[in-house]
């Protein structure tokens, strides 16, 4: 065989990889590490602290950070560090759970709107227009007024409030891919419509939405802890970052550590989730990290 029409010589694969993935910035590693530790704290909080987050000690109230109590104690003498560690589970559950609901509902509606006929699309989009009119916190307050406070009600309320937004994004993404040349090429090959949708449209639509959802977890988590801060989410004495801050508000002048560290936990979590989400997005767009 004589190769007489040589193809354009492409750079070696390794060089091309380098151009598209020039290595991850250290900040992204750090954020991923923080996320890993948070997940670990959710599964096995005992690995991080030997103290009981509910153990009351009236002799040790509002003590500043010390060797015994790393981040000090609260008004009931409970260990703040241990309460933060044990509170991870509730806080992460709120963030991830709410987004899972939003993704499931929004994904289903968005795909239906993106693939369905004009009537279905209009119906779904008009409903999501109405839904968008209600900020998540407000909708959550309505749900709580009717159904009462608590972690699961807060989670459901925030999740439902986010459905319209995700429905829109998923629909836009689905439409974009549905009109792309590679989907047209698949049709031209004679692939059946369900196959084209399952093989090309959905997988390509899901990825950017999942990445977006990563970043959304952060804001859902903040909304969840805000409800607890207002006394409408996780009830005391169970440890939760927002409700800790709610109590800490009354002791601002006397115990700075109490009002500081639970907030650090929230902010650090949101930053990590956002950094990892943005890095994933940049990579999926073929840009540098």
């Amino acid at each position: 065989m004589t190769v007489v029409t040589p193809a354009n010589p492409a750079p070696p694969v390794s060089a091309r990889r380098l151009r598209f993935r020039p290595g991850i910035r250290p900040g992204v590693y750090l954020a991923a590490l923080v996320l890993f530790l948070l997940v670990l704290a959710t599964v096995a909080p005992h690995l991080f602290t030997g103290q009981d987050p509910l153990a009351v000690d009236s002799a040790q109230t509002l003590r500043p950070p010390s060797a015994e109590h790393l981040l000090g104690t609260d008004e009931n003498g409970r260990d703040v560090f241990s309460r933060i560690v044990f509170g991870t589970r509730t806080s992460l559950l709120l963030g991830f759970g709410a987004i899972a609901i939003a993704l499931a509902g929004g994904g289903l509606l968005g795909v239906a709107a993106g693939l369905g006929n004009r009537f279905v699309e209009n119906l779904i989009m008009r409903f999501s227009d109405i839904g968008l009119a209600f900020p998540e916190l407000l909708l959550a307050l309505v749900v709580i007024t009717v159904a009462g406070s608590g972690t699961s009600n807060a989670l459901i309320a925030i999740g439902v409030a986010n459905i319209p937004n995700y429905a829109r994004v998923v629909r836009a993404q689905t439409l974009l891919i549905r009109r792309s040349s590679y989907v047209e090429a698949a049709h031209a090959l004679g692939l059946s419509v369900p196959r084209v949708v399952l093989r090309h449209v959905l997988p390509n639509a899901v990825k950017p939405v999942l990445i977006l959802a990563t970043i959304g977890v952060g804001s859902a988590l903040v909304a969840g802890s805000a409800l607890s801060f207002l006394g409408l989410g996780t009830p005391p004495p169970e440890p939760e970052w927002g409700s800790m801050l709610s109590t800490a508000r009354d002791f601002i002048s006397r115990a700075w550590w109490y009002g500081l560290f639970p907030g650090v936990a929230i902010t650090l979590t949101v930053i990590s989730v956002t950094v990892v989400g943005r890095a994933l997005r940049l990579r999926s767009e073929g840009r540098t990290w």
Binding site: G218, V222, S225, A226, F229, G242, L245, A248, R249, I252, W256, G259, L260, P262, G263, I266, T267, V270, I271, T274
Partner: peptide
């Protein structure tokens, strides 16, 4: 942007 406003408020108050 990652700082919840209620915590930021507490910090400002402190």
């Amino acid at each position: 942007a990652s700082t919840p406003s209620f915590w930021l408020g507490i910090l400002l108050l402190t």
